[in-house]
C-alpha cells in the first residue's frame, strides 16, 4: 500500500538518479585530484573534467542552457586563462613538492568538519524532498531566454558594465609599466624613419 501511494524511496532506481550518482562520483573524484595533485598543469586539466561533469549534472537536472554556458565559459575560457596564467608565472612542469603548504592537517580538519556538518544539515533538511523532472523542461534556451530578457534585463545590463570594468581593470593591471622616458632628438635623428614607415 505504502509502496504505491507513498512518496518514492530514497534509493529509487530511476535512470536519472543512477546517472547523476555516477557522474557525481566522477566529478568529485576529479575535484579531489584537482586539489591534491602535485603537478600544477594537471590540476588545471583535472578542473576540466570537474567542470564537464558538472555540465552533465546540469543536463540531468534539465538545465540545458546553463550546461552549454558552463561548457563555453568555464571549460572554454576560464581553464585556458588559468593555463595561460600558469605559463606566464613560469610554473614548473614536473612534480613540484612544495605545491601544498605546511598546514595540510589543519586544512583537512576544517574541510572534513565543514563537510560533515553541512552534509548532516542538508540530508536532515531535504530528506523527504523530491524533484519532479517529468514536467516541462525548466531550463531550455527558450525558457531561459524569455525569463532573462523579460524579468532580469536590468541585472543583465549591469553585468555587461561590470564585465567591461573588469576587462579594463585587467588590462591596466597586467600591462607592463609605461616608460615615461621619451627618446631624445639625437636618437631620432640618428635613425631616420624609412619611407612609408610609421613616423
Amino acid at each position: 500500500m505504502s509502496l504505491a501511494a507513498g512518496p518514492p524511496g530514497f534509493l529509487s532506481p530511476a535512470g536519472v538518479e543512477i546517472a547523476f550518482l555516477l557522474v557525481g562520483i566522477a566529478t568529485l573524484a576529479a575535484a579531489l585530484v584537482t586539489v591534491t595533485t602535485k603537478q600544477l598543469v594537471h590540476a588545471a586539466l583535472w578542473l576540466v573534467v570537474t567542470l564537464g561533469g558538472l555540465a552533465i549534472e546540469y543536463l540531468l537536472l534539465t538545465a540545458e542552457f546553463i550546461a552549454w554556458v558552463q561548457v563555453l565559459i568555464y571549460v572554454g575560457s576560464v581553464v585556458v586563462l588559468l593555463l595561460f596564467g600558469l605559463m606566464l608565472t613560469k610554473a614548473p612542469i614536473g612534480r613540484s613538492p612544495d605545491a601544498d603548504s605546511g598546514n595540510r592537517w589543519a586544512a583537512l580538519t576544517v574541510a572534513i568538519a565543514a563537510a560533515a556538518t553541512l552534509v548532516w544539515v542538508v540530508v536532515d533538511a531535504f530528506r523527504s524532498t523530491w524533484i519532479d523532472l517529468s514536467g516541462a523542461v525548466q531550463g531550455s534556451t527558450k525558457v531561459t531566454g524569455a525569463s532573462l530578457f523579460r524579468n532580469w534585463v536590468l541585472p543583465f545590463e549591469a553585468l555587461s558594465v561590470l564585465l567591461l570594468a573588469a576587462l579594463v581593470g585587467a588590462i591596466v593591471l597586467a600591462r607592463p609599466p609605461v616608460t615615461r622616458h621619451r627618446p631624445s632628438k639625437d636618437a631620432l635623428r640618428a635613425t631616420p624613419p624609412r619611407h612609408g614607415a610609421r613616423s
Partner: peptide, 23 residues
C-alpha cells in the same frame, strides 16, 4: 530525483574547494 543528491554533491564540492584554498 531526490533533492539530497545535488545538495550533497554541492556540499562535498564546496568542501573540496575549501580544502584547496587552505592548503
Amino acid at each position: 530525483m531526490h533533492l539530497a543528491y545535488p545538495a550533497v554533491l554541492a556540499v562535498l564540492l564546496f568542501c573540496v574547494g575549501l580544502y584547496g584554498v587552505l592548503v
